[in-house]
Design a protein around this nucleic acid. Sequence first.
DNA 1: GTCTATTCTCGTATACCCTACGAGAATGAC
DNA 2: GTCATTCTCGTAGGGTATACGAGAATAGAC
Lengths: 260, 260
Amino acid sequence: MAERHSGGGPADRTLALLWRNQHPGPATKPPLGRRPTLDLNTVVDAGIALADEKGLAAASMNGVAKALGVGTMTLYTYVPSKEELLDLMVDQVLAERALPGPGEPRPATWRDQINLYSDQTRAMFRRHPWLASISTIRPPVGPGMLAAREYLLSACAVLGLSARQTNTAALAITTYIDSAAGLEAESEQLERSTGQSHDAWWNERYDLWETYFDVERHPTMTAIWNAEGYGDGTREAADESYRFGLDRLLDGIEALRDPG
Amino acid sequence: MAERHSGGGPADRTLALLWRNQHPGPATKPPLGRRPTLDLNTVVDAGIALADEKGLAAASMNGVAKALGVGTMTLYTYVPSKEELLDLMVDQVLAERALPGPGEPRPATWRDQINLYSDQTRAMFRRHPWLASISTIRPPVGPGMLAAREYLLSACAVLGLSARQTNTAALAITTYIDSAAGLEAESEQLERSTGQSHDAWWNERYDLWETYFDVERHPTMTAIWNAEGYGDGTREAADESYRFGLDRLLDGIEALRDPG
DNA sequence: GTCTATTCTCGTATACCCTACGAGAATGAC
DNA sequence: GTCATTCTCGTAGGGTATACGAGAATAGAC
């Protein structure tokens, strides 16, 4: 049997770090011993800044320490391991989204409430494209993640579906928004970091059409290409694709609303 | 200006590897020099097997070489770098899906055709959960990726939408299916590899509800919890969630069909 | 002022990762 | 047998995370 109560395990330690800014803590004992030169928020901010500017790989323990002007091992005073640092970076970034809490003013319609979540999430991924390359199963359960879930669930709750279906609908919406927004941001960031546009990338694969592509095996792709169905690769085209998928998903969910 | 024609760049070399089994090649010159002990397909298969069994991290150059009983550097005879090996692993796995090509028998209705893609893709992710942790922007453009795209587009083509909308619809469908199936497989694999169920993982975070969770800031979550809206964490519940999202998305797309 | 308990700092070492280089082994052609 | 060619793979170099332990800084006791 796994322990059911707080036992000071690694998960409890991580939770304490995640909620450090919301929860007062038992009691502030008088400081003893050598004073720290940094604090946890500074370390997390440095990690985020580094990942934003130079990619997730640059946010190594060595990299973050150098950016802060301390030795690598000093970071381990503030964070038990790199894994926890990443969790803290993620939840902080999740919390950046300006989503109204319970009782605060919010858009009038269900769709606009979802669209607010969508806009805020896309902006978040644009600011922090490295987020897309972090697995979201078993995420850090910190204030940022919980606040976003609460908002999305509360938006879906107005549809009047069962509790089970409300949850499932919210899940489908996050799945689509988070992954589509992540892909979008990752693509834009790749264009910036490699200096190679999406079109240039395809041009580099000119040989594909020249040498390997078999029209007979790919008639639909060929037809869509001939009808110029692939769009022009601009940001606007990508935006339109994103909206199309989200709008259709919301259409489908809204159709379940009490058919009165 | 970037070069427009095949110039033997790194992209062309990767394409040649990806299409090695489809395309005969210019001419088979007589073998010269020492005979190789392996071939590329063996190396790729070993990489896939290792990633399947012990995770993507185990499919290191060292790990694959050891599994094949050769020195690490020997692999570089067959593959220019680890990046290419990964591309080859991915496209091979993408090609595993049994999706009918043009002219071959396929399910009668649009929805069943999409469902076939969904089933095959979910099974693929279940067999190869490491696939979920590989970025899909700028994927390997090999036979596996192209065949799947062709199938999905041909399924969407029967809706009678414009070429542009057909492509956009297919994009939305892959976005949902690929990410939801990836998450599902990643979660199942984590349960296997860590030996910790989803429920056990939440139990380990008992302190969250005990110490940190604020009911006033999360009324909807609380209400859904009290109404037992979160399901029981079983495979069936996850399956139901997956289907719900996909069905709603397909509902929304189908509603665009000529409203006759 | 000195001593001590406590805490923070961080150099060193270990165990991985990818891969550039180059020496040596195997092979077919002559 | 010699030679060009190709494959094999040990070594080395630069990257990653982090365990360990010596040393520095600080607060309070005396």
